[in-house]
């Protein structure tokens, strides 16, 4: 903090001269670290926003998803996503009146955004072979899981534009996290 202030003060006359007021608070203090290349950022930037802005080019269909699933997923999740050693992928009950929260912790149902399904498969699957699926394959598997759970129709094509637009059944049925501030108690009225 001390170093930061001193450096800022030294820069002050110069910044006033060129009228760079806003840059004052933003100058680096320590000058440690280097700037990553655009390629380095692209290679690591795998968190997918609900807006889908980080989604890579590519596309996938339910049919392609079924082919990829047989090769890369069925061994652990079972032939149709309902059996096997790994978690179940398809809801047990069907019908418009069943609330998504009553269907258990099944990713393509519980998740409020289809981008989360894409992100999860992309970073976490297949077990022990993470990172080996192509973008097209992840789009295709996402399409298959959403189709199996009655979220999209069989002929839908998912890509960077259509995926964020998918209306997930749990889209608005989750509680936002608290607007946390330092020194804040957890919940007023909770038995303290």
């Amino acid at each position: 903090m001390g170093a930061y202030t001193m450096r800022s003060l030294r820069l002050l006359p110069f910044l006033m001269l060129v009228g760079g007021g806003p840059a004052l608070a933003q100058s680096p203090t320590y000058g440690v670290g280097r700037t990553p290349s655009a390629e380095e950022i692209r290679a690591w930037d795998i968190s997918i926003s609900p807006t889908g802005e980080e989604l890579p080019p590519g596309r996938g269909t339910v049919t392609e998803g079924a082919r990829v699933y047989r090769l890369r997923c069925a061994r652990c999740h079972g032939a149709d996503g309902t059996e096997g050693r790994a978690p179940r992928l398809v809801k047990r009950e069907r019908g418009p009146d069943v609330h998504p929260w009553s269907l258990g912790r099944i990713l393509p149902i519980r998740s409020p955004y289809a981008t989360t399904v894409w992100d999860y498969i992309n970073r976490g699957m297949p077990l022990n072979r993470e990172g080996t699926l192509t973008a097209d394959e992840v789009y295709a598997l996402t399409a298959l899981l959403l189709y199996w759970n009655d979220v999209i129709a069989e002929d839908e094509v998912l890509d960077a534009q259509s995926l964020p637009m998918v209306e997930m059944p749990n889209r608005d049925a989750w509680a936002p996290l608290p607007d946390w501030k330092p020194g804040m108690p957890r919940l007023r009225g909770y038995p303290y």
């Binding site: 998740s111 409020p112 955004y113 999860y120 509680a175 996290l177």
Partner: peptide
């Protein structure tokens, strides 16, 4: 924004 990423999804609450 809240990204609803890998670990976030598993800790969603309804209430």
């Amino acid at each position: 924004r809240f990204y609803m990423t890998y670990n976030d999804y598993g800790h969603l609450r309804r209430d």
